[in-house]
Write a protein that binds this DNA or RNA. Structure first.
Lengths: 270, 270
DNA sequence: ACCCGTTGTTGCAGATAGCGAAACGACCGT
DNA sequence: ACGGTCGTTTCGCTATCTGCAACAACGGGT
């Protein structure tokens, strides 16, 4: 097949051909690539795109590369294959808000209200944490910025550790490889075995925390959200300046975050 | 500002400039337009895009037009302004699946399982129904195709009427204008006043139906989903070949759909 | 009603920017 | 080590995009 099913220029309501302003070739092709990646269920190698849309590999490469620069596409952990990137997500935020926002955002609101800190939802996207929604406290002088649409590493963030909670050493190795973990601050967990122990602890505690392991000044508490089968599908948590997290004690935050996670998990089971 | 904040070629993890394959200009510009529209909260006129990205009107027009042909952008009811289209939505649904899918899709599964018909979620997007998820029955010889990512009119679909249920005559006039309603089949509701009466009935019954008012052969039953404040935020329903809907009786379908809607509404309140 | 400014749309010709071919290089399996 | 596959880069040609400018469709003011 040539490059994808262009909806044949028909005005849906009337059937008359809409005036034929010719398409911009490279944009059109680029969008075809984007759709192809979106349609695929697994990371897509360049080759596959090439014979899917039927033009030269070099062109496909450059188009895909442009999409990557704008983060419509990304390569999972340095692989050459393509998956959808955060910008693609941002597109949806208007719709996404309608839905996801309407349905779950109030959990973030409540969490932020009771704790006075920025709260987030996150999911695991390949080997990274991906933030899908946030809520920022009103009238708080200093607070952590929202991160919706951003990626963060798994091994040194509370969300990441919450999302990894069910992993054992083998699973972790499979995910992050054998290489030593990227170090961001003096507190960053360096070894995978250590990380595995942390995960075990998260399973016990029901929450994970990050004490400036990723960004020196920022601490975080997060808990896993599970679906009906008990699988971890997302995480909810709060971010705070480390100092404040210490002084006010993380205990209360942990309790509230866990409560929220449980509430959401429960609402999924109904 | 020139056309948007390109993420300056930095490989996030290492800070080294990623190998500088130059971007495809037209694709890059097209994506800039897409992002601009996504970022905006209201329909965007061409002019605005033009001075936002700082190139000639004609180019912007042709780029935007290409985006429209692929339905990344659409013009709300014949206006010249741009909003995000269904394709953009489909992209995000890949993420959306992770979330929304995991969280609510099972309601559709159950509904489809008990009734043996295609089920949908929809939201109101401007003056149209927008389908955000669906589930198709397995092993059913004839069933209605899924419509995720598609638009449909409000006044002659079950979903539309469910979404409008709380509207009175004034509200309806504000939404659809004074013009007579577009007629699709002999059954289509033609007048706004009539529509208002139907809405009142929906409020009483707790569900809406469409007896081939939009597409001759397709019938549909839908019920509104409400958020904590009681506002209608979405709808859930099933589509069926009209004949089957008649013979099997719509009563059972209505009951099940209402039950599902109530369950979701309840899960939002928790 | 007329005009004028603004904004959307189409034609055109020139030049740029995108294209394919081919060379290069990285990687894998045998 | 070698051959094959796939990703990346170079290069020169020309198809394709672009900007200009004319045209058309509004809309608001007088």
């Amino acid at each position: 097949m040539r490059y994808a099913h262009r909806t044949a220029q028909l005005d849906k309501t009337s059937g008359k051909p809409s005036h034929d302003t010719p398409a911009i070739q490279s944009l059109d092709r680029g969008l075809a690539i984007l759709e192809a990646v979106a349609a695929a269920s697994a990371p897509v190698p360049l080759k596959q795109l090439t014979d899917l849309i039927g033009i030269d590999r070099s062109s496909v490469f450059r188009l895909a590369n442009t999409l990557r620069q704008r983060r419509f596409l990304v390569n999972p952990k340095g692989s050459k294959d393509y998956i959808l990137g955060p910008t693609a997500w941002r597109l949806s935020r208007r719709y996404g808000r309608h839905v996801l926002g309407t349905f779950f955002h109030h959990y973030l609101q409540e969490l932020t209200a009771t704790l006075g800190e920025t709260s987030h939802f996150a999911v695991r996207e390949g080997v990274e944490v991906f933030f899908i929604d946030h809520h920022i406290p009103a009238g708080q002088v200093v607070s952590v910025a929202g991160q919706t649409g951003e990626f963060a590493p798994l091994h040194c963030t509370a969300h990441g550790k919450a999302l990894l909670a069910d992993c054992d050493l083998r699973a972790l190795r499979g995910l992050v490889g054998r290489a030593p973990l990227q170090v961001y601050t003096r507190r960053t967990v360096k070894s995978v075995t250590r990380l595995a122990r942390v995960c075990a602890q998260v399973r016990v505690d029901g929450f994970a925390f990050d004490d400036g392991e990723y960004i020196e000044e920022v601490g975080c508490v997060a808990a896993p959200i599970r679906d009906v089968q008990g699988e971890i599908v997302a995480s909810v948590g709060i971010s705070s300046p480390v100092t404040r997290l210490h002084t006010r004690g993380m205990a209360r935050a942990a309790a509230e975050v866990k409560r929220t996670a449980r509430a959401i998990t429960a609402s999924l089971a109904s």
